[in-house]
Amino acid sequence: MGTNKIPSALTIGIARGGLEVKQFMRQRESVVFTLAFPIMLLGIFGSVFTNELTDGVTFSQYFVAGMIASGLVNTGFQQLAIMIPVERDFGTLKRLRGTPMPASSYFIGKVIVVFVSMVLQVALLLIAGILFFGVNLPTDPAKWFTFTWLIILGSAASTALGIAFSVIPKSGRGASAVVSPVVIILQFFSGVFFVFTDLPGWMQQVAALFPLKWMTQGMRSVFLPDSFAAREVAGTWETGRTFWIILAWLMAGLLISIKTFKWERDR
């Protein structure tokens, strides 16, 4: 036997990321769904609500922030909480468990594929928004800075929570029935489809417990003029609080994933 070292968890994780991206790109239906669905929704909502919310802020502009934030939840949380039980059913996970690949490499691979599909999705959504729905991009570099950390931190948190939630569906077949309602309800509560402050107070308070509300608010701080902050619940963007809350959800997701991850179906 040779004396080479076993590759590090990070090296294997990056290799897994490459493989996952390749697999994702080859599943045409899911590529189309992930990339085109947000654009379709933007088109529908942009056509239904044509009024301006305040001076110069169209509903499309408001909605783009919500779509990007819920894209984080869809590509990370929803996809993984549905896909991982399928991988468990297929025996993919059990096979991986029998190799020297550590669980952390598997998680790193998932973060990479979520991040890559997120970047593609946001790029296409913004291009379509600018071309067809009169969406304006921010010009302030500080806003782009917020945008960047929101995408990175949001993808990571959403991935970790998707892996954590994947223990709940008993089988791959039932997974989407368990996961999708959670996501759809959160989207309504978090001000993705409606102006958040127009929602009933109790809904706002429930939403504030979950990360999607904060991701959405964070994205609004990027895409809406600062004058609009006055119309938020706190009267400001609460950027610092947003960062800490999403980070806390990331940590919770990681912890739960490490403690409860299931490689095999219960028998």
């Binding site: 076993i6 590759p7 294997i12 493989l19 025996g91 993919t92």
Partner: peptide
């Protein structure tokens, strides 16, 4: 096992090769 149908034989085998020292 009935997974990863969207990868080729050589892609899959070379990927698993990356898990091992030798």
């Amino acid at each position: 096992t009935s997974d990863a149908g969207d990868l080729s034989v050589i892609e899959t085998v070379s990927h698993f090769a990356k898990y091992y020292s030798n």
